[in-house]
C-alpha cells in the first residue's frame, strides 16, 4: 500500500479524521511535520479540554483527557546519537525516540524545549495545567509559570513550596494577581517569615503549615473550600468564625477544615458548646438560607455548608 496522502483530503474530511483520534494520537500526528501540525491547529480542537501535568522535576509533560488516554512527553538533554530520528518541533530540529504512548525529545536547551512543547500543546488544545513550584525546579518553574500566567492559562492544581528569593518574590507577585485562574491552590510548606499577600484568590485553598494564616487572612479569604493544617487557631477563634458565618460572612464557603493542636475540649465554648457537644451538630445562618454540618475530632473541625432545602 503506498503512503496515504492525508493532507490532500478535503478539509472537512481531514477535520473529522483529527477529531476521531485520541489525544495521544493527535499529538503524535502533530509531530509528523509542521504542515500536519498547522492543519491540526487550524481545527482548534478546543472543545476537547485536556489536562496537562507538568512534572518540572523530571521535565516530563503528561497530557490526558479526564485522566484517561495519557500521553507522556519526556524532555531530555541533547543526544549525540546520529542514528536517532529527527523531527521538527516548534521550529527546532530535534532527535526523538517514539513509543506508542510517549515520546522522548532531546533538546539542546531542555528549558527552552520544555516551553516549546507547552506552546505546541497550547496551539492544539484548550489546556488546564497542574504542577508544583519549588526551589528545586526553579530553573524550569520560573519561566514556565511566568509564561502560563502571562497567557492567562487555567490551572487545575497548583502546588507551591514557597522559598525566599528575589526570583520567588517576583513569581509570587505575578501569580497572586491572577489566582482566579487556579481551581485548587496548595501551599505545601513555608519559611520563617512567610507572610504572603493575596491580590486575588483561587477557588480552593489548602495550606499545610498554616501557622501564619491568622483570622485576618481567613476573614479575607473568599474561597469555596479552605483546608488548613498545623494551624494556631483555637476554640475562641472558631467561635468567632462560626458566629461570622451565621451572620452571613464567608458567603462562598462550602467546606472549611481546620487542624490545630489548640482546638481542645476545654472550657472555652464554641457557640455555647464544648467541642464534643458540637460534633455532628447542624447549625444555620441567621437568615435561614444555609445550613452547615459540623464534624469535630481531636485537634480538628470540619464544616460542610449546604443550601437550606
Amino acid at each position: 500500500m503506498p503512503p496515504f496522502p492525508l493532507l490532500r483530503l478535503p478539509r472537512l474530511v481531514l477535520g473529522e479524521v483529527f477529531k476521531s483520534l485520541s489525544i495521544g494520537e493527535k499529538i503524535q500526528l502533530s509531530f509528523c511535520s509542521k504542515k500536519v501540525s498547522t492543519q491540526i491547529n487550524n481545527w482548534r480542537l478546543y472543545s476537547q479540554k485536556v489536562r496537562v501535568y507538568l512534572d518540572m522535576y523530571s521535565h516530563k509533560i503528561e497530557v490526558s483527557q479526564n485522566g484517561e488516554d495519557k500521553f507522556k512527553i519526556f524532555n531530555r538533554c541533547d543526544s549525540t546519537d546520529p542514528d536517532m530520528q529527527q523531527l521538527q518541533i516548534e521550529g527546532c530540529t530535534v532527535p526523538v525516540i517514539c513509543f506508542t504512548n510517549e515520546i522522548e525529545i532531546f533538546w539542546k536547551n531542555h528549558q527552552e524545549g520544555f516551553l516549546s512543547v507547552i506552546r505546541h500543546l497550547l496551539k492544539m488544545f484548550k489546556c488546564k495545567f497542574s504542577t508544583t513550584i519549588s526551589y528545586y525546579n526553579s530553573d524550569l518553574s520560573q519561566p514556565t509559570i511566568s509564561m502560563l500566567f502571562d497567557l492567562q492559562q487555567e490551572f487545575k492544581i497548583l502546588n507551591i513550596h514557597p522559598y525566599g528569593s528575589e526570583d520567588y518574590n517576583f513569581l509570587w507577585n505575578k501569580i497572586s494577581r491572577s489566582f482566579e485562574l487556579v481551581d485548587d491552590f496548595r501551599i505545601l510548606s513555608c519559611f520563617d517569615d512567610f507572610r504572603p499577600v493575596f491580590n486575588s484568590w483561587p477557588q480552593k485553598i489548602t495550606i499545610h503549615s498554616s501557622y501564619w494564616f491568622t483570622l485576618d487572612y481567613l476573614f479575607a479569604c473568599p474561597c469555596t473550600n479552605i483546608t488548613i493544617f498545623n494551624s494556631l487557631l483555637n476554640n475562641k477563634d472558631l467561635d468567632e468564625i462560626l458566629r461570622k458565618w451565621k451572620a452571613g460572612g464567608f458567603p462562598n464557603l462550602e467546606y472549611l477544615e481546620i487542624h490545630s493542636d489548640l482546638i481542645t475540649n476545654n472550657e472555652t465554648t464554641i457557640l455555647g458548646m464544648n467541642i464534643r457537644e458540637l460534633d455532628r451538630k447542624v447549625i444555620q445562618t441567621d437568615d435561614g438560607s444555609k445550613k452547615a454540618t459540623i464534624d469535630t475530632g481531636i485537634g480538628r473541625i470540619d464544616i460542610a455548608v449546604t443550601p437550606f432545602e
Binding site: P2, P3, F4, P5, L6, L7, R8, E25, Q28, L29, F31, C32, S33, K35, V36, Q85, L87, V96, C98, F99, T100, I103
Partner: peptide
C-alpha cells in the same frame, strides 16, 4: 501508531 510509524503511513506533501 507513534510519530515514526505515522510518517511511514502518510505522504507529507
Amino acid at each position: 501508531k507513534n510519530t515514526q510509524e505515522m510518517i511511514k503511513v502518510i505522504t507529507l506533501p
